[in-house]
């Protein structure tokens, strides 16, 4: 494709990224660096502030929570803190999967792929996309949650009981390295599309059209990085290497989820998450 076509593709994917995902990296970095001019996020750093943070969110999101309670996926006040937190993460993750699906459907050619292959690409790609995007909300000390309203410290997450304390550390380690690449939202849009269009996912029926689509997006990404980061040598190659790290993180994450499903008798795993992690790795 000509450069102009590749730039048009980059613009299209950036536009649909902005439509699909409510909290951009630009907004998140502004919140994290205190440059929004808004009120700073509420900080959760111990069990007391966790309870206060939950009340804050409850006050702001009553209609949503009531809906979730009807569905049986909201936390119960008497549940253990770790379980309440995990259930909240799940509710957000399920919503995030819907956002990623909408973004995937906006990738030119995606909806024309074999429907089974669309399912496979999402099943395998969605956690890699979510973890890449989550890095935008993190710094070395903690992570924004609840659409940027709350900052939860890394130390607090490490203080949770096993195995919950083990869930986030690998994501923090990844985020510190990934954020060093200094991608912006327009770069991220292309990178996420590349992840989704991975032709080596197990069980794909018709690989060729997926690889062709990915090839075009890869060319658009390479051009984008050259134009947007002219000083950053080998950024394209460095970014592609991150895809290997992502696969390992997701494999470990999914194994942990599968373990939680077996060992945490009080834990309720959302049917969508069950669908995704079943027979995944």
């Amino acid at each position: 494709p000509e450069s102009a076509d590749l730039r048009a593709l980059a613009k299209h994917l950036y536009d649909s990224y902005l439509k699909s995902f409510p909290l951009t990296k630009a907004k998140a970095r502004a919140i994290l660096s205190g440059k929004t001019g808004d009120i700073a996020p509420f900080v959760i750093h111990d069990m007391k502030s966790l309870t206060a943070g939950e009340q804050l969110i409850h006050c702001k999101q009553v209609p949503l929570l009531e809906h979730r309670q009807e569905q049986g996926f909201s936390h119960e006040p008497n549940d253990e803190a770790e379980l309440r937190f995990f259930q909240r993460c799940q509710v957000r993750s399920v919503e995030a999967v819907r956002e990623v699906t909408e973004f995937a459907k906006s990738i030119p050619g995606f909806v024309n792929l074999d429907l089974n292959d669309q399912v496979t690409l999402l099943k395998y790609g969605v956690h890699e996309v979510l973890i890449s995007m989550w890095a935008s909300l993190m710094n070395k000390d903690g992570t924004l949650i609840s659409y940027g309203q709350i900052f939860m410290t890394r130390e607090f997450l490490k203080s949770l009981r096993k195995p919950f304390c083990e869930m986030m550390e690998p994501k923090f380690d990844f985020s510190v390295k990934f954020n060093a690449l200094e991608l912006d939202d327009s770069d991220m849009a292309l990178f996420l599309a590349v992840i989704i269009l991975s032709g080596d996912r197990p069980g794909l029926v018709n690989v060729k059209p997926i690889e062709d689509l990915q090839d075009t997006v890869l060319q658009a990404l390479e051009l984008q990085l050259k134009l947007n980061h002219p000083e950053s040598l080998q950024l394209f190659a460095k970014l592609l290497q991150k895809m290997t790290d992502l696969r390992q993180i997701v494999t470990d994450h999914v194994r942990l989820m599968q373990l939680l499903k077996k060992t945490e008798v009080d834990m309720c795993l959302h049917p969508l998450m069950q669908e995704i992690i079943k027979d995944l790795y």
């Binding site: 909408e102 429907l115 969508l272």
Partner: peptide, 21 residues
């Protein structure tokens, strides 16, 4: 595959909320 992934399939087809499907 679509049978085993009804919610993902529905999201792909019509974009319903995951809790509605």
């Amino acid at each position: 595959l679509q049978e085993k992934h009804k919610i993902l399939h529905k999201l792909l087809q019509n974009g319903n909320s995951p809790d509605e499907v």
